[in-house]
Computed example of a mutant assay.
Amino acid sequence: MKVIREKFHNQLVTMPRLFPINCYLIKEQKFMTLIDCSKKGESRKIIDVIQSEGCPLKHIILTHAHSDHIGDVDKIKKVFPKAEIILSEKENQDLNHKERKLSPLPVQVDRLVKEGDYVGSLLVKETPGHTRGSISLIDLRTHFAFVGDLIQTKGGNAIAGDRRFIFPFPAMATQDKTAAIQSFEKISKDQYARYYCGHGSYLENNSEKIQRMIARGNAKIN
């Protein structure tokens, strides 16, 4: 696992060259929040990074319920039993209705969130598309957006549902391509400094790149 350390967060990257899967450790003054949990088999590495920071883990937020994002969340919860497991209300509803494209959670959800809720310094934004209940988290200190699989940069910048030949997997798992484009249009209007995704490096705020992504996405569904 590759660890990219920044002032307010660490980016933890599983298989950075072949099949990068990102999760993020958000560092607050007195606690930390983990966004996503990578895939199964990575929990020990994630736990080691958390423990190396010497600060309690207070929250585990899942941007959506796919196997490469929930990973071994139960094993992480076992080591940090006071950490809240957080999921969106809509994603939880779909899990309860056994939506076939979602991966069942191996642990109980402690808190459900919706648009406008806060988790520490993170603001919750509902960004459906990749899944109906997908959320993004905005760090209000840095103006960074952590968007799960709403976009990808591995294989080329693309909105969820826009299949890239080199890395087609997020597109293959996307539930609603039109909703994903609408979500990215909505969130990009706020012009966040960076967009951190589930697969690939971050996307700098660049209106030309963003408009190309939106145009390409729309062309694929029209």
Rank of each mutant, 00 (worst) to 15 (best):
K2R: 15
K2Y: 14
L12I: 14
V13Y: 12
V13G: 12
P16C: 15
R17N: 14
F19L: 14
L25G: 06
I26M: 12
K27A: 09
Q29R: 10
K30C: 03
L34C: 05
G41T: 11
R44Q: 13
P56N: 07
L57K: 04
K58C: 06
K58N: 08
H59C: 13
T63Y: 00
H66N: 07
S67F: 10
I70Q: 02
K77M: 02
K78W: 00
A83D: 05
E84D: 03
N92P: 10
D94Q: 14
L95I: 11
N96D: 10
H97L: 13
L102M: 10
P106C: 12
R111V: 06
V113H: 07
G116K: 04
V119Q: 02
G120T: 01
S134Q: 06
F144S: 08
F144E: 01
L150W: 04
I151L: 06
T153G: 11
G156Q: 06
D162F: 06
R163Q: 11
R164V: 02
A171Y: 08
A171R: 03
A173N: 09
K177A: 00
F184W: 10
E185A: 10
E185G: 07
E185Y: 10
K186I: 01
S188K: 15
R194Y: 09
C197W: 00
G198E: 06
H199M: 10
N206I: 08
N206F: 11
E208W: 12
I210C: 03
R212K: 11
M213D: 01
N218C: 11
A219N: 14
I221Y: 14
